[in-house]
Nucleic acid binder design. Sequence first.
DNA 1: GTTTTTGTGGTTCGATCGAACCATAACACC
DNA 2: GGTGTTATGGTTCGATCGAACCACAAAAAC
Lengths: 203, 203
Amino acid sequence: MPRQVDHDQRRRQIAEAVWRLATRGGLEDVTLRQVAAEAEVSARLLQYYFGTRDQLLLGALEILNDDAERQARERLGMLGDAPGMHKIVRGVLLELLPLDGERRNRHVVYAAYFVRFLTDPSLAKVARDAPHALENLVAGLIVQGQESGQVPLEVNATAEATFLVAGAEGIQSSVLLGQRSAEDAVAMIDYQLARIFTTPNGE
Amino acid sequence: MPRQVDHDQRRRQIAEAVWRLATRGGLEDVTLRQVAAEAEVSARLLQYYFGTRDQLLLGALEILNDDAERQARERLGMLGDAPGMHKIVRGVLLELLPLDGERRNRHVVYAAYFVRFLTDPSLAKVARDAPHALENLVAGLIVQGQESGQVPLEVNATAEATFLVAGAEGIQSSVLLGQRSAEDAVAMIDYQLARIFTTPNGE
DNA sequence: GTTTTTGTGGTTCGATCGAACCATAACACC
DNA sequence: GGTGTTATGGTTCGATCGAACCACAAAAAC
C-alpha cells in the first residue's frame, strides 16, 4: 500500500536501526544489509530513502541531532516557572550525561561517528555547531546570574562555561566506560555549580 | 633474511600503520589488506605477528598505551628539579591535550576504539585503568598541595581532580573538532588551575 | 479506465573482506 | 652439511560488502 506512508516515520525507523547498530559495534557494523535486517525492511528501501551508505550515515545523524535538541528543549521546559539560572545551567549540563538510555545511546552514536567528523566535511558541519551553541548558552546564563547577584562578579563566565561543558562531556565518557556511576557524575557537576553559583541547587 | 629481525620493531611498524588508518577512517578502514599496504609488509605478516584482526586491534592498542605512558613519564621528568604541585598537575593535564601530532593522533585512535571499549571485554580492560589512575594521581597532588599550603583546605581534592581530568578530555575533543585552538585549551586549563592553586603557573 | 507516479521486494555484480593455506628462503644447531 | 625452526611472500576460499538493476503492486492523476 504505497503512497500513504509517512516518509519521516520510515526514515526514523531506519535511522533508529542505524543508531542501534552503531551503538553495538561502531560504524563498521552499520552495513546496508544489517541495517535493513535491524529495521525489518528490505535493503532496497534504504536506497530509496537515503541513497548511498554515506548519505544514510549522514541522514541518521541529522535525525539524531534533531531529536537531541527537541528533547533537551522539552526537558528544560519542565523545570517549572521562572527557574533560576543555577537550575537552568544544571539542566543543560545534565542533558550531556547518560542519565537514561536515550541520552546514553546518543553519546555512544556520536562517539562512533567521531573520527568521521574529523575527515568528512559534510558530517563535520553537523557536529561542529551544537557544542559551541551550548557553551554560549551557559556563558550567557552565568552572566545573567552575575547581573542578578547569583554569581560573584569575579567569575570569568566564558571560561567557566567552557570548562563546565567540557567537563560534563568528559564525565559522560567515564560513566559510559563504567568508571563512575551516573549519581557520582551528577554530584561532580553539582560540586562545580555550587562553586560558581551562590544559590542552592533548586533555585 | 629472517631470524635476526627485531620482533618488537616489526610489531610497532604494523601497529603504527593501524593507528594511521584508524586516525583517517576509523576502525572500519583498518582492514588487513590496508594495514599490510600501509605498513609495507605482506598480509601474511600481520597474521604471523598478531593473528586475527581482533588480536591486531588489541595489540596495536596496547602498544599505543605503552607509548603514551612512557612519553608522559618522560615529559614530566623534564619539568626540572622538584617542581611544585601546580606545575606537575599542569603537566599531567597537558598530556591529555592534542598539543602535538603524537598526542593528537593518540586521542583520535582512542576515539576510534571507543565504542568497542563498551562491548569488547578484552579491550575494555586496557582502557579502563588509565583514566582512573590519572584522577588519583591528580587528587594526590592536590592533597600534597594542601599540606604544603599551596591549595586552600576547603577544596575537595577528589572532586576537583575528577573535573580537571574530565574537563581536559572534553576540551581535547573540542580542539580536535576544530572548535578551539590548542592555545585556548591551555588557557582554559590554566584558568582552572589558578582557581585551585594559590601559586603562580611556573611553581 | 488507462496512464503515471510512488513505494517496495528481490536479485545480481564486481570488489573486498578475514582467514586459511602453500611454498620457500634464511638462519641456527649440531 | 644436513635438519629443523623462524620469518616471509603469495594465493585461494567462502562470505559479505555497497550499489545497481529488474519487476511489480498500489494509489493518484487524468
